[in-house]
Write a protein that binds this DNA or RNA. Structure first.
Lengths: 218, 218
DNA sequence: ACCTGAACACCGTTCAAGT
DNA sequence: ACCTGAACACCGTTCAAGT
């Protein structure tokens, strides 16, 4: 009955809700159409193909990530990191907070998390976040060319971390098998949880350390 | 007619060859079976499911990556990096060479490259390479716990870089659109090619920089 | 002109039927 | 006991037929 309510935003919102509820496997054109109680082909009048729809859903999932600078010393996720940043390296706190916030927002939407950051961010939220990321890297002292390269490295790491987090349960078991196979004397409890916030933060710190070194060099 | 020649190794080898020729889209159970001139279900007597087969193909694609230490100052890919490493940071050269070699081996097999490093490495070659990676990180001065975390960060970055490289053509176009959308004054030529060796090396250097900082700290 | 749904060309995997 | 292929429950997308 909602004939005229079928538009790109409504479709993306329905797909997001469906993915939140039933996970990645539910994100097919047919099931999204069922969620909207419309013909699968009706979606194609608003998106050229499935990937374009997933791009829109991924962008929608990032709508809640705040990039307003005045919120930097708030109480949200990443606030502690922001508050603890030393003055000269304020960019570090902003960069870590930004990527942590994006990760958290993505994981609130398990149906689409694996798609987020896997493609260049052409949606409004993706571009907004990309701009903040670029500003932080410029502040870090990187050259224009290195800013572009560092951006892609950070997005690549984020994409892989999200893909891992989505499959986490299954993968943890396999990582323990790797530990056993190599006969490492690490007990299970010592292994970081794959896709955990702690694991993500560690890799992100490596990248930030590396960016600081590059920035001081240039 | 090759009734008894159907075994896990032969299946994985046929799938790898098919993927090299026809790309990622050809890696379906049905097309792999067609390549082997057998019933699709015959494969299930050797692998529990498609993912297990892809894991075997991914491991096979890494067979050519040499980890013999005596080859470290050879003429293969990464030799220059190895030769240029300063004595105290020999681990840096080894780590960069290892991951660069894995990347190159993966990209020689476009049908499976996107699957490599996307799951914990339980195959013989994956475990072999994992062990060399671990040794390099121990040499870098990381604690046991940090070695595990850094390993996962490096593998995550590698997986994302490979996934990007496989889709490169399509993605480059989109990255240029991002640049235009943000009205950055970068001309197209200045943007790094997504998934290129140069782009990969930059991100890897960031991670290695970061690991060095962590190792000196601990 | 706009919209619908049947149809095409596929999937991974199960399972009943054959040998 | 082992093996086969028909069948199940899906896909994304095209396109001819309807309104």
């Amino acid at each position: 009955m909602p004939k005229r309510s079928l538009n790109p935003d409504a479709i993306a919102a329905a797909a997001l809700a469906l993915g939140d509820r039933d996970g990645q496997a539910a994100m097919s054109m047919r099931r999204i159409a069922a969620e909207l109680a419309c013909d699968p082909m009706a979606i194609y009048r608003h998106f050229p193909n499935r990937e374009a729809l997933l791009d829109a859903v991924a962008d929608l999932a990032l709508a809640g990530v705040v990039t307003d600078r005045s919120a930097d010393v708030g109480t949200g996720p990443g606030a502690a990191v922001r508050a603890g940043a030393s003055p000269g390296f304020e960019w570090e706190g902003r960069l870590i907070a930004l990527l942590s916030d994006v990760r958290e927002a993505a994981l609130r939407h398990p149906g689409i998390a694996g798609h987020i950051a896997s493609r260049p961010p052409l949606g409004p939220n993706g571009l907004r976040l990309h701009r903040v990321l670029t500003e932080a890297l410029v502040a870090a002292g990187l050259s224009r060319a290195d800013v572009a390269k560092a951006t892609q490295a950070l997005i690549a790491y984020l994409a892989a971390a999200l893909a891992m987090a989505v499959r986490a349960g299954e993968r943890d078991e396999r990582w323990h098998q790797v530990g056993k196979a190599l006969e490492l004397e690490v007990d299970s409890a010592q292994l970081p949880i794959v896709g955990s916030a702690e694991q993500f933060a560690f890799g992100l710190r490596l990248l930030v350390n590396g960016i600081r070194v590059e920035g001081q060099r240039g």
